[in-house]
């Protein structure tokens, strides 16, 4: 049975993204949540951030106007997270 997995990026962004991509390998649905931050694109993670898109991994932030992620208010994020089978802060 496929699962819904939420990855919350706390501080180690690049490893969190690498893990998020890997989690799709069993056809589970994976989304990435950013609390009080946006994705920061660097030379090292550029390819992985592009891969998030290709793997249909959506990224959400509670900060309005982020360039790399869609905005959702904190209250919505808190509620939405509970719809996932696994919630993995990283």
């Amino acid at each position: 049975m496929s699962k819904k997995i939420a990855v919350i990026i706390k501080d180690r962004q690049d490893e969190a993204i690498r893990m998020s991509i890997g989690l799709t390998l069993m056809d589970d649905s994976v989304d990435v949540f950013l609390l009080d931050r946006d994705l920061v694109k660097t030379k090292d993670n550029e390819l992985n951030i592009e891969t998030l898109d290709e793997m249909d991994i959506k990224t959400y932030s509670n900060i309005e106007g982020c360039t790399e992620s869609a905005y959702i208010p904190t209250a919505t994020m808190a509620r939405e997270l509970l719809s996932y089978d696994h919630i993995l802060p990283y």
Binding site: S2, M19, L23
Partner: peptide, 9 residues
């Protein structure tokens, strides 16, 4: 990471 995917699944 495939092993992590299997574990989570």
């Amino acid at each position: 990471q495939f092993n992590n995917a299997m574990m989570n699944n």
